[in-house]
Design a protein around this nucleic acid. Structure first.
Length: 203
DNA sequence: AGCACGATTGCCT
DNA sequence: GGCAATCGTGCTT
């Protein structure tokens, strides 16, 4: 069951919290790769010094944030990694939720091939490193800037309820990662994690 | 046209 | 723990 448009039509903090435990799917060329979201960050838009859209900054890169909710925002960081966000809130309020880590569930062999060049016989360490970071999960799912602006209610990249009920979990909130430039916003508790999940990007 | 920097990762000590 | 890699992007000139 895909999350509907209204799910995304709320503020980023609310959506970031509620995306925990949901299932991200990338389906391309008949190949399905998916995982459960275990870590997110909220970027609250024009008033959030951590956000790409802070102060109403609008560029070709973040243009999709200014469109309707429920679309992908994929951007390149450090010249080599991609980060996946869901655009949230009504059109014109440029907020987003960064997907920071997944627990892999489907297409693990394909993800392993994409990350490590082998489809099986992963060490426990490799298994954990498959999707425990925003750049890593994009690598595993095969997501690039070419997947920017996709409708998350479409058939290529979408988010659903989990196929089988995910074990009950506690949600933790803490400061976001690597936004040292964000002044007072540095300490806002807008990073959400499933407590003790083995696929978190850090403790 | 040039330049400083980043919502990261992986390798090294 | 530290730090280099690597280049698209945005902003200045």
């Amino acid at each position: 069951m895909k999350l509907d448009r209204d799910f995304y039509n709320r503020d980023a903090v609310t959506v970031a919290r509620e995306l925990l435990g949901k299932r991200v799917v990338h389906q391309e060329d008949g190949i399905c790769r998916a995982g459960i979201i275990v870590e997110t960050e909220a970027y609250m838009g024009v008033e959030d010094k951590g956000a790409h859209s802070y102060g109403g900054r609008r560029t070709p890169r973040n243009e999709v944030m200014y469109g309707p909710p429920g679309y992908s925002y994929v951007y390149i960081i450090y010249g080599m990694y991609n980060c996946l966000n869901a655009v949230v809130n009504e059109a014109g309020t440029p907020q987003g939720v960064l997907i920071r880590a997944l627990e892999p569930t489907e297409g693990i062999d394909v993800m392993a091939e994409a990350r490590f060049g082998k489809a099986s016989l992963l060490t426990p360490r490799e298994m954990r490193n498959l999707t425990n970071g925003p750049g890593k999960l994009c690598g595993a799912l095969g997501l690039t800037r070419a997947h920017n602006g996709l409708d998350l209610l479409g058939d290529e990249l979408f988010i659903t309820d989990p196929l089988v009920p995910f074990a009950s979990f506690e949600v933790n909130a803490g400061p976001r990662i690597n936004i040292d430039y964000a002044e007072e916003a540095v300490h806002y508790p807008w990073r959400f994690t499933i407590q003790d999940n083995p696929y978190l990007s850090r403790k």
